[in-house]
Amino acid sequence: QLRFETNGEEQAKKVLEEAKKHNLEAHVTIENGKWVVHVK
């Protein structure tokens, strides 16, 4: 499982879109005010 700390909602959405293009499972959590994308 990969973990990407992003700078906010915009970047998190871009990472999610990329993951979906590659048929990867991804979800976002907010940790300590940071948007974190988890990709399987």
Rank of each mutant, 00 (worst) to 15 (best):
residue 25 E to G: 05
residue 29 T to D: 09
residue 11 Q to D: 14
residue 25 E to S: 12
residue 40 K to R: 11
residue 11 Q to G: 10
residue 36 V to F: 02
residue 29 T to W: 03
residue 8 G to C: 15
residue 29 T to P: 00
residue 35 W to V: 08
residue 25 E to R: 07
residue 35 W to K: 03
residue 31 E to D: 06
residue 3 R to C: 15
residue 38 H to N: 11
residue 30 I to K: 10
residue 36 V to A: 01
residue 25 E to T: 11
residue 25 E to F: 05
residue 28 V to K: 02
residue 33 G to L: 01
residue 36 V to Y: 05
residue 6 T to I: 07
residue 9 E to N: 03
residue 20 K to M: 12
residue 12 A to D: 01
residue 16 L to E: 04
residue 12 A to V: 06
residue 39 V to E: 02
residue 27 H to I: 11
residue 24 L to G: 03
residue 22 H to Q: 11
residue 6 T to N: 03
residue 15 V to P: 00
residue 27 H to N: 09
residue 33 G to N: 06
residue 40 K to E: 13
residue 31 E to P: 00
residue 30 I to G: 03
residue 36 V to N: 00
residue 20 K to L: 14
residue 6 T to A: 09
residue 10 E to I: 09
residue 38 H to D: 05
residue 18 E to G: 08
residue 28 V to H: 01
residue 38 H to L: 12
residue 3 R to P: 04
residue 27 H to W: 15
residue 11 Q to I: 07
residue 26 A to G: 06
residue 3 R to E: 08
residue 33 G to D: 10
residue 38 H to A: 06
residue 18 E to Q: 13
residue 12 A to Y: 04
residue 32 N to E: 11
residue 1 Q to E: 15
residue 38 H to V: 15
residue 22 H to M: 11
residue 35 W to L: 07
residue 35 W to Y: 09
residue 29 T to S: 11
residue 20 K to Q: 13
residue 40 K to H: 13
residue 7 N to T: 14
residue 35 W to A: 04
residue 2 L to R: 12
residue 33 G to T: 00
residue 12 A to F: 03
residue 18 E to L: 15
residue 36 V to L: 03
residue 38 H to W: 11
residue 13 K to G: 07
residue 11 Q to F: 09
residue 23 N to E: 07
residue 28 V to S: 03
residue 15 V to L: 15
residue 20 K to H: 13
residue 32 N to T: 01
residue 22 H to N: 12
residue 26 A to K: 00
residue 36 V to E: 04
residue 9 E to Q: 09
residue 39 V to P: 00
residue 6 T to Y: 12
residue 31 E to M: 06
residue 13 K to N: 14
residue 13 K to M: 14
residue 28 V to F: 04
residue 30 I to N: 10
residue 38 H to M: 12
residue 20 K to P: 02
residue 30 I to D: 03
residue 34 K to R: 11
residue 40 K to M: 13
residue 25 E to H: 12
residue 1 Q to N: 14
residue 18 E to T: 12
residue 6 T to K: 01
residue 8 G to N: 15
residue 34 K to H: 11
residue 2 L to I: 15
residue 1 Q to K: 10
residue 22 H to L: 12
residue 17 E to Y: 04
residue 28 V to T: 05
residue 2 L to P: 04
residue 5 E to H: 04
residue 5 E to I: 13
residue 7 N to H: 12
residue 23 N to T: 03
residue 32 N to H: 03
residue 33 G to K: 01
residue 15 V to E: 03
residue 15 V to C: 15
residue 6 T to W: 01
residue 23 N to C: 15
residue 22 H to T: 04
residue 21 K to I: 08
residue 9 E to P: 15
residue 23 N to I: 02
residue 26 A to W: 05
residue 13 K to W: 12
residue 26 A to S: 05
residue 14 K to Y: 05
residue 11 Q to V: 08
residue 12 A to L: 07
residue 12 A to I: 04
residue 24 L to V: 07
residue 23 N to A: 08
residue 10 E to T: 08
residue 8 G to E: 12
residue 31 E to S: 04
residue 12 A to W: 04
residue 35 W to H: 09
residue 9 E to V: 08
residue 21 K to A: 12
residue 16 L to M: 14
residue 23 N to D: 10
residue 40 K to T: 15
residue 11 Q to L: 08
residue 7 N to R: 08
residue 24 L to A: 06
residue 21 K to N: 10
residue 24 L to Y: 11
residue 34 K to P: 00
residue 31 E to V: 07
residue 11 Q to K: 05
residue 22 H to G: 06
residue 5 E to F: 06
residue 29 T to C: 15
residue 28 V to W: 02
residue 2 L to K: 10
residue 21 K to P: 00
residue 27 H to A: 08
residue 10 E to L: 08
residue 14 K to P: 01
residue 16 L to I: 12
residue 5 E to R: 00
residue 32 N to M: 03
residue 24 L to F: 12
residue 39 V to A: 02
residue 37 V to S: 01
residue 37 V to A: 01
residue 11 Q to T: 09
residue 1 Q to M: 15
residue 3 R to L: 09
residue 34 K to V: 13
residue 21 K to R: 13
residue 28 V to D: 00
residue 17 E to N: 10
residue 31 E to R: 03
residue 30 I to Y: 13
residue 34 K to Q: 12
residue 21 K to L: 11
residue 17 E to S: 10
residue 36 V to T: 02
residue 20 K to V: 10
residue 29 T to M: 08
residue 34 K to I: 14
residue 35 W to R: 03
residue 28 V to N: 00
residue 1 Q to P: 09
residue 4 F to V: 14
residue 25 E to D: 11
residue 27 H to S: 12
residue 7 N to S: 14
residue 31 E to T: 04
residue 25 E to Q: 12
residue 38 H to Y: 15
residue 16 L to P: 00
residue 5 E to M: 04
residue 31 E to H: 06
residue 37 V to P: 02
residue 29 T to A: 07
residue 3 R to Q: 07
residue 4 F to L: 09
residue 11 Q to P: 03
residue 39 V to R: 00
residue 12 A to T: 05
residue 40 K to F: 10
residue 17 E to F: 05
residue 16 L to V: 13
residue 23 N to K: 09
residue 36 V to S: 00
residue 9 E to H: 05
residue 25 E to N: 09
residue 5 E to K: 01
residue 7 N to K: 10
residue 34 K to F: 08
residue 1 Q to D: 15
residue 1 Q to S: 14
residue 5 E to P: 06
residue 38 H to I: 15
residue 35 W to I: 08
residue 19 A to M: 14
residue 7 N to I: 12
residue 4 F to D: 04
residue 24 L to R: 09
residue 11 Q to H: 12
residue 40 K to A: 12
residue 26 A to Q: 01
residue 13 K to L: 14
residue 32 N to D: 14
residue 28 V to G: 02
residue 10 E to S: 09
residue 14 K to A: 13
residue 8 G to L: 10
residue 17 E to I: 09
residue 38 H to R: 05
residue 38 H to K: 06
residue 17 E to W: 05
residue 22 H to Y: 07
residue 27 H to G: 04
residue 35 W to E: 04
residue 37 V to L: 00
residue 17 E to M: 13
residue 25 E to K: 08
residue 13 K to F: 11
residue 20 K to R: 14
residue 16 L to Y: 11
residue 27 H to E: 10
